[in-house]
Write a protein that binds this DNA or RNA. Sequence first.
RNA 1: GCCUCCUUAGCUCAAUGGUAGAGCACGCCUCUGAAAAGGGCGAGAAAGAGGUCCGAUUCCUCUCGGAGGCA
Length: 306
Amino acid sequence: MPFSPTGHNPVNIICIAGPTASGKSARAVEEALARDGEIISVDSRQVYRGLDIGTEKMPADERRGVPHHLIDIRNVAETYSAGDFVNDACRLIPEIVARGKLPILVGGTHFYFDALLHGLPAGVDANPELREKLELLPTEELFARIREQDPRRAAELDPQNRRRLIRALEIIAANGTVPPRARDIRCPDMHSETRTSDVLTFAPEWIVIDPPAEELRARIGARLARAFERGLIEEVRRVREAAGDARLNELGLEYKIVGEFLSSSAKATEDAARLERKLFPILSAKLWQYARRQKAWLRKLGHPMS
RNA sequence: GCCUCCUUAGCUCAAUGGUAGAGCACGCCUCUGAAAAGGGCGAGAAAGAGGUCCGAUUCCUCUCGGAGGCA
């Protein structure tokens, strides 16, 4: 009998979260083997083909035959969003369950967990033309418009945060207002035209990996050193040629920082060893900041971290 | 050995005869479809000793340290 998700049948899933370099991926494979699972990557960068070393994608042989989903599904020139993730996960999870397997979600993009489990506002897709127009307006004007059209949302928003303001106006343009956020765990049904009342609900089992600060710093440093050995700079050079500096900047961390060095001709001509010596402290600082932000997200998701 | 220039926050650099600003790093917080992204807040500094002056980070002298030039 085919699997039919409804609001009355919460789906058991495992959610493995934690800061960068904490060992999530290896743990996920162990869980998958022990509990007959398939892995869904919750990682906003591993979705891109060609970002392998910088994103620490697990090599095929280490996956030990466990299916991994949502890795290598986009070109770097394309964008992937939290909304895309929710849609993809809501499609994949029932498929995995229908195969009699346990869905295991693992990754460092904790906002994606948040979006999946607590919902995003009713599907309003990104509107590049509108964004481009709004981008030209002063921040105060953006905020004033929201205050006028949706005071409830305006009260929640940071008036300085242009990115959030523009997104709110994008939703207002399509919907009139930004709907308040749902509190329960649900996933909008993918075929709402035919099954309007169905939602997918989840019963997550959390595995949060939280190494002590000193250990995490050491792991980040060791992983970064390995990334350089494996050709991180060459990888960024390739991505830069394919996608350009503006896109590298959006990809963040290694891609942004190394890219900045490569685009400065004076620095780019330095020999590799010199370049690495300069980049190492900058990148490990950035990775540490990233880990801090990830921990903040986990606190928000209800998993206090040290 | 002589001459010149330099010495300001962890780092790179500002301004100023009236008790010093920024960027990055650091700490805290925040986040409704770019999230490895975005936003807010905070702590932190005049190499040392003298002198001039109502008042010196600023002007002068010496010392330490650094860069360069001449021998």
